[in-house]
Amino acid sequence: MTEYKLVVVGAGGVGKSALTIQLIQNHFVDEYDPTIEDSYRKQVVIDGETCLLDILDTAGQEEYSAMRDQYMRTGEGFLCVFAINNTKSFEDIHHYREQIKRVKDSEDVPMVLVGNKCDLPSRTVDTKQAQDLARSYGIPFIETSAKTRQGVDDAFYTLVREIRKHKEKMSKDGKKKKKKSKTKCVIM
């Protein structure tokens, strides 16, 4: 069974824990209790493949930012979460993405942009803004509501699919490099 290491990042209060708990335990946590770091595991079937999701729910508070490099190193894919009623959390996505790329030393890291709290009427981040940002990053965008469960499975499952595509691409690139290195030079 394939294991996928997913990391949920975003500013404090955007609903990272609520999304994760909704996926794992099928219930909505409405009281806000700032996370330092929590880890969850769940076995699911995605596109006919049974897999184990190892999900790291991270601290959004700035005082825990020193811990970010460590979990970013171990993560295979990242859910970059903002709240649709919090423009600052949307603007912060850029910083999370840049930090992930720096730590992973790669421009090509599996990510999904997630606009959470889409059940709320007080939207300050337009869907088109988020779609445009995701398009500019070359990553999928999904709106979710941890409260109603809308888009929750889709967000995590899409990230797994992005990781699969990335692994497939990397193995193809690896095979191309191996083929090239088999060419021999004969000096007579």
Rank of each mutant, 00 (worst) to 15 (best):
V7H: 05
K167I: 03
K179R: 14
I24C: 09
E62W: 04
C185N: 15
G12E: 09
G13R: 06
H166R: 13
A66Q: 08
L56P: 10
D153Q: 14
D153E: 15
A59C: 09
K88W: 13
F141V: 04
V81Q: 02
T2C: 10
S17Y: 00
I142S: 01
S136Y: 04
G15T: 00
L6K: 00
Q131N: 06
V29K: 11
G75Y: 13
R164S: 10
V112L: 03
I163N: 04
L133G: 04
S17G: 08
E168N: 15
T127H: 13
R97L: 15
K5D: 04
N86A: 03
I46M: 05
L53D: 02
I55P: 07
K172S: 10
R41Y: 07
G10S: 00
L120F: 09
Y64N: 14
E49H: 04
A130W: 10
L19Y: 06
E162F: 03
G151T: 13
Q43R: 09
Y32Q: 08
N116K: 00
E76K: 07
F141Y: 07
Q43W: 03
K88D: 05
D105G: 15
K117E: 06
D38M: 05
L113D: 00
K172Q: 14
D105M: 03
M188L: 11
Q99N: 02
D108W: 05
E31L: 05
K178L: 13
E3G: 13
D92I: 11
M67S: 14
V160L: 05
L52A: 13
M188G: 15
E63N: 11
G48N: 07
E98D: 08
I21A: 15
D54H: 13
T74F: 09
G10C: 02
D105W: 07
C118D: 08
A130L: 13
D38Q: 01
P140V: 09
Y32E: 11
D105Y: 02
Q70K: 14
I24R: 12
D92S: 02
E143L: 09
C185Y: 08
D173I: 03
V14L: 06
T127F: 14
D108Q: 07
N116I: 07
G10P: 00
V109P: 05
V152R: 03
T158S: 07
I46E: 02
Q70D: 15
V109W: 03
K176M: 10
I139Q: 08
M72E: 08
V125A: 12
S171G: 15
R123H: 13
D132W: 03
I100C: 01
C118W: 07
Y40H: 13
R135A: 15
V45C: 11
D173V: 06
Q150V: 13
P140A: 12
G48D: 07
V114L: 08
S122R: 08
D119L: 01
C80Y: 12
V81E: 02
K101V: 02
V112Q: 00
K42A: 08
